[in-house]
């Protein structure tokens, strides 16, 4: 019986063309990363040929637009970290407690209401948070602390904190849910209360997942742009006082690009040097977060 089971050239060609095209689309994402790195690195290298990298990293004055220029990035980095730190103080406890509430306490119906609302909170554009900070949070702050600047780090911290609550709560909730039922049952079987089961068994078991969500949320806060540009001001200021006006790295990048900076000038390159710093900081945090998350998954799979 002669049955032809051999490969047909035409079909093989068609299939492999499709396969190649699909691969090209996936590989394209790698090009995007290469593009980011090349673009940032090229202009940054040019920047550092004019500005010493030591001055850049250790200088305490950021005055690129002044007659006598200073390129110490510390005020911008401290501005970013001040806002992100403040946001973390708000979002981390609230986020983890909401996660515990959603995974351990809330019934299905409450979850069905709360979770979409948190998703909406995460989906509100950052420019809207900026408006909210400026017209609602800042007046409130000035009521309590009359000396507060119109543009201040605290208002930005608070709205950025609100913005990253969903990141912390949803990723932490996933981590809490991944803790096997049997662990909870074992603790209940020993006569533990819900509080003890939650805080002494479930949270410790999910700790690496929770930490990963914290790091990711802080990384988002550092990269946040519009809310801080609107609410925190544009004054590079090496300070720890959240009631003062400051400038973050992201706000500087926006400010520098608003004016029509000509290509090839030092001012244009400043933008890339700051962008590179921001990129490396957030990338570092994201990688650490992914690494912690991967270790968490290994524990339970």
């Amino acid at each position: 019986m002669g049955v032809d089971l051999t490969r047909k050239g035409s079909r093989k060609l068609g299939e492999s063309l499709i396969g190649t095209a699909l691969f090209a689309c996936a590989a394209f994402s790698t090009l995007v990363t290469v593009g980011v790195v090349v673009v940032l690195a090229r202009e940054s290298v040019a920047f550092f040929s004019e500005v010493s990298i030591v001055d850049f990293l250790t200088g305490t004055r950021w005055e690129p637009m002044f007659q006598e220029q200073h390129f110490g990035i510390l005020p911008l980095v401290s501005g970013s970290l001040l806002v992100a730190g403040g946001a973390g103080l708000i979002a981390l406890p609230i986020g983890i407690l909401s996660a515990i509430f959603l995974s351990e306490y809330a019934g299905a119906r409450l979850q069905a209401v709360l979770k979409p609302l948190l998703e909406i909170l995460a989906g509100v554009p950052t420019v809207v948070y900026g408006y909210f900070a400026l017209t609602f949070i800042t007046p409130l702050l000035r009521l309590v602390f009359p000396g507060t600047d119109i543009f201040n780090a605290a208002a930005a911290s608070i709205v950025v904190g609100l913005m990253i609550i969903p990141t912390v709560s949803s990723l932490s909730e996933d981590a809490l849910r991944a803790v096997p039922r049997s662990l909870r049952e074992a603790a209940y079987g020993l006569g533990a209360t819900k509080l003890e089961v939650s805080t002494r068994v479930v949270v410790p078991a999910a700790l690496s997942g929770i930490i990963a969500s914290f790091i990711l949320a802080i990384s988002r806060a550092v990269g946040e742009t519009m809310a801080v540009t609107i609410a925190a001001g544009n004054l590079p200021n090496l300070t720890l006082n959240p009631l003062e006006s400051i400038q973050t790295m992201t706000a500087f990048i926006v400010q520098a690009s608003m004016g029509d900076t000509p290509q090839g000038t030092l001012a244009y390159r400043t933008l890339f040097a700051v962008g590179m710093t921001l990129f490396l900081m957030t990338l570092g945090m994201n990688i650490v977060s992914q690494w912690v998350m991967a270790r968490f998954r290994e524990e339970y799979q």
Partner: peptide
């Protein structure tokens, strides 16, 4: 694995960095 890791990292890049890329790559 490299492509997959890269995509996860790209998802975490701040949007303003995409703006810088767009400025240098597409606009200029």
């Amino acid at each position: 694995r490299a492509i997959q890791t890269n995509i996860a990292n790209l998802a975490g890049v701040p949007s303003i960095v995409y703006g810088i890329l767009g400025l240098a790559l597409f606009v200029r």
